[in-house]
Write a protein that binds this DNA or RNA. Sequence first.
DNA 1: TGGTCATATGACCAACTGGTCACATCTTGA
DNA 2: TCAAGATGTGACCAGTTGGTCATATGACCA
Lengths: 226, 226
Amino acid sequence: MPSDTFYNLPDEKREKLLRTAIDAFAIAPYEHVSMSQLAQRAGIAKGSLYQYFTDKRELYLYLVQLAADEKLAYLQRVEPPSPDIGMFAYLRWLTEQTLDFQFANPNLYQVAYRALYGDRPFPDASLQGAQEAGIHYFEGLITQGIARGDLRSDLDIELTALLISNFFSQVGNYIVDTLGKETFDRSRGPLGKEAQSQIRQAIGTLLDLLERGIGAQQHDDTGENK
Amino acid sequence: MPSDTFYNLPDEKREKLLRTAIDAFAIAPYEHVSMSQLAQRAGIAKGSLYQYFTDKRELYLYLVQLAADEKLAYLQRVEPPSPDIGMFAYLRWLTEQTLDFQFANPNLYQVAYRALYGDRPFPDASLQGAQEAGIHYFEGLITQGIARGDLRSDLDIELTALLISNFFSQVGNYIVDTLGKETFDRSRGPLGKEAQSQIRQAIGTLLDLLERGIGAQQHDDTGENK
DNA sequence: TGGTCATATGACCAACTGGTCACATCTTGA
DNA sequence: TCAAGATGTGACCAGTTGGTCATATGACCA
């Protein structure tokens, strides 16, 4: 936990520090982010930095937690759709929201993405827990999907959850890959509208693919065996 | 390119060095591998190391190239199946071979995996080229698959290639994830037979999923002909 | 034997890291 | 006005890094 001193900081100063740190951890892996450079870039003394956070590790975990909180807040910003709309419609909604969040907070998103899917900088229960929680969430979703008849009944739940989880991580990956250069260059500016819609379309196609892959087959299952 | 001195080394010494380096780069990202520790662990002086390779970078790229060469040699070890067997059968064969190679050379494989899908330690044309080559390869495969009627004709080739490429990377990922602990603990011993077959089965399921997702639909598309 | 050349070595270097701490400065309340 | 406590600061520390280089070693040949 950051110290009281950190929370007592004038908003502007605190936000500048956070922005600097988020930007740093977004474009480079944990080890490449230097506390000295961070302090310098944020315009504060290194000693101050260590008065706010006991460690580099604490600072980092704080940022990851921040990303998780903001994402959750973002999802709760609107009424979630009724579960009745079916599993794939729900996944589409979730993807849409995730993309929106990512476009609005590219660097914060990137920090979380690295934490979950990149090299883990140090063993940490909360990070591992978050990843497992994601998979468990999908397991629940799949169990429901099967019960409701949205999904094929012969799916291996654990494996499918892993697949979907990876799939969602690929969404992020895809964006970073295809637009990596662009994001790096104008590292803070939002992505162009045309790039955004291009990405949305691609993701939509991928979801279609997933739906065919694991969705209940209207023709095949009933009647003849394959 | 390593120096002549390196190639002149007695086999045993050279291999010990290579093994040490491969092990190091397999379990840790580039930046975490220390040349000093490497030299020490391999039982040679640091100066010698720098007589063989001009840089850390050169050593690393040499290992990656080595992995690529060995994998290629491994694939050419047996006659590849005729392309006529169909796209998915071919993919199955390819996956099988990749798994075999990975089981036989876990650490070498891991080095290559990190190079392709992990954080790229430095900008390098050959690494990027390798990744793109992989995607292009799949693009060719998909184009053929569509022409032959194995695949739906409405697929976005580029996007599907990306998906398959990612899918194959997930194969590696999955293994590392599910068996991470085991691999770390007995870091050189081969995986147990039962673990291997468990993995093969899971991969098979994933391939089924992929086939449903992008394969030509016998029922859906053309109204009930099979 | 002495000379030449490839090879081996580890002390050494500058640059950097995460982290500390004695001290300077500011804010607050009396 | 002054004291006390909170906050800011950057020189400093030990440790590590990638990389260098003068010197030592040893194999080969005359």
